[in-house]
Design a protein around this nucleic acid. Structure first.
Lengths: 114, 114
DNA sequence: TGTAAATATAAGCATATACTTATATACTAA
DNA sequence: TTAGTATATAAGTATATGCTTATATTTACA
């Protein structure tokens, strides 16, 4: 496995964004599948504007991508981001968020598009 | 290699501290050897109080340890910290800071104690 | 069309952050 | 003792952050 070195300043920027419980949870959720804003609102139990503002920061930094599908906007991890390897390492060491998505699904709150 | 899972909130706290260029550099320097405050001041080209305040945050969080030797206080990474595995991964992906310490040494500014 | 749903953005505000300058503390050595 | 060096801490300040409420935008659908 080749070792990838990422500039210190870029790394610091990414870590700063992930150094927030809400945003780290968002990234953790995106590890398993893309999600739309209303799903984050439900899982995080936060107001919609607050969630949108966190997503905006992640998007502005290029860590996530957005894609509109009908009335929903889906977010996903941007695996092309320079610091993605670091994000992967971090995701590997925090608890899996899959369970939260499963709970959503069981509550019938998961959004499915075609 | 056993997989170590670290609570999301603890991880976020550590990432927040590392999400600052100055502190990330400090941690990067400590990867290679312990350092005293005046060495950080020299390498980082920052005021002594500013450096001390960054070190305090790292120490309060338990990420670094301090040890007085004579008139100097040396800081080192705390390998016992719960989030140390994450710090290691991050250190593995940023540029090596060893060169900066070597430059210090050549300038005769490295502190040596017994 | 008009209304509802999903989302983004703007404005306001309280708190956190990262410096600065000034001063206190602890150790060393004359 | 006293002066000098290394370091910590305190106080002040400008800026950043993360929420809130209010409003705008886009799409779906009756």
């Amino acid at each position: 496995m080749e070792k990838i070195i990422i500039e210190l300043e870029d790394t610091a920027k990414t870590l700063k964004l992930l150094g927030d419980k809400t945003r780290l949870t968002i990234i953790g959720l995106l590890k398993d599948s893309e999600c739309c804003v209303c799903e984050f609102v439900e899982v995080l139990q936060m107001s919609q504007p607050s969630v949108s503002q966190h997503l905006r920061k992640l998007r502005d930094a290029g860590l996530v991508r957005e894609q509109r599908r009908g009335q929903w906007i889906f977010y996903s991890l941007n695996a092309q981001h320079e610091t993605y390897p670091i994000i992967q390492q971090i995701l590997d060491q925090i608890p899996d968020q899959k369970e939260k998505l499963r709970a959503l699904e069981e509550a019938g709150l998961r959004i499915q598009c075609n």
